[in-house]
Design a protein around this nucleic acid. Sequence first.
DNA 1: TCCTACCAATTGAATGTTCATTCGGGCCTG
DNA 2: CAGGCCCGAATGAACATTCAATTGGTAGGA
Lengths: 200, 200
Amino acid sequence: MNIQLVGTYMEPIADKKKAIFKSTMELVREHGFHGTPMSMVAKHAGVAAGTIYHYFESKDKLICELFNYAQQQVIAVVEQEDCATIPFKACFANLWMGLYTFYRNNQDILRFFEQFVNSPYSAAMPRLEEDKFYTLLFAFFERGIQEDQLREVSPRTLGMLTHSSILSIAKLTASGRLSLDSKELEQVHELLWSGMARHH
Amino acid sequence: MNIQLVGTYMEPIADKKKAIFKSTMELVREHGFHGTPMSMVAKHAGVAAGTIYHYFESKDKLICELFNYAQQQVIAVVEQEDCATIPFKACFANLWMGLYTFYRNNQDILRFFEQFVNSPYSAAMPRLEEDKFYTLLFAFFERGIQEDQLREVSPRTLGMLTHSSILSIAKLTASGRLSLDSKELEQVHELLWSGMARHH
DNA sequence: TCCTACCAATTGAATGTTCATTCGGGCCTG
DNA sequence: CAGGCCCGAATGAACATTCAATTGGTAGGA
């Protein structure tokens, strides 16, 4: 039986299934989609090759489900930080740092995402309007504009700019090619903020 | 004889070699690294499979050489826009639009790059210090700081932020999921500028 | 001018490997 | 003992790479 992930946030997932997800993520991070045969996933996850096919129709389905699984986690971060009870500016800072921290601590996911969205798999992704992550993100910036905190630039543009800055900095620091202390990280999102904010 | 590309900018490249580059780029864009067998490249380029191996040691080498080949073109854009004879702010605007336009007009390259840098191939990339593109980019922002035009944020950070904004907007508009008119494009890099600029 | 020796360029069928996927059977648990 | 889980060897397709054979062009000698 395929246990559904989608929608209900995160039902208990069969152990083996979770192990397969985890292994796939790690291996794909290190070796790419090509370069990670099912046999390798099986061995790494400690299951037999056939078992994977008990849980997933095919390699492609596995990859796509894994994407959704990981996406849920990112969505959880956004939902946690996007709260209307604190000033928008602070909320923006939290969101930036929250997402940044998440990607830094989950480099597998970061790398997997980037591979996924730039591969032909991305054809299987929902359109922006149906993508929960982006819907949340855009709504957040919409709110900033409503509250007269942000310039009148399309919320989509603001959302993409913010997210891309997080991703690029996270990738860079994760790769060890650049290291930023916490003061410099603050600088980054302040810089973004001062570009996007409405100057009264 | 392998005609060298590296270093001397761009020697005349054997026709077939160029055809192979072009086909690989288009096919990889559409089908990914996996998903484009050498036989497909051969057919698309109008050569025999064996011919590819006359010019390239292996598939991996082909991919890596292609990356360098494309990188040269991006470097050319930076070199063209980064001129010290006009005010820094204008130069920044030119650079942003120049790179954006380049990626918009060369979606193959954009997509190929993103796949490459997030794949295991990226291990073959030079370190940031030895990467000509980034060296130029960072020097550009260094200049802005010297000239007291920019905040004192690490030039690397500024460079990465700028480049990531270009890439994300170019990817998004290229995919048709968002379209920006020229006024909105201006807004984007002005927004960035106002975040990065020193406020006297 | 013609002939020939030489070599780079090119071909595509053949090779051997790697891989996704299948399936017949074993092992628990209720 | 039925039914769900799980195993892993076997299968067949797809692929990167090789190589023996062919072409075409060029330099030199007569």
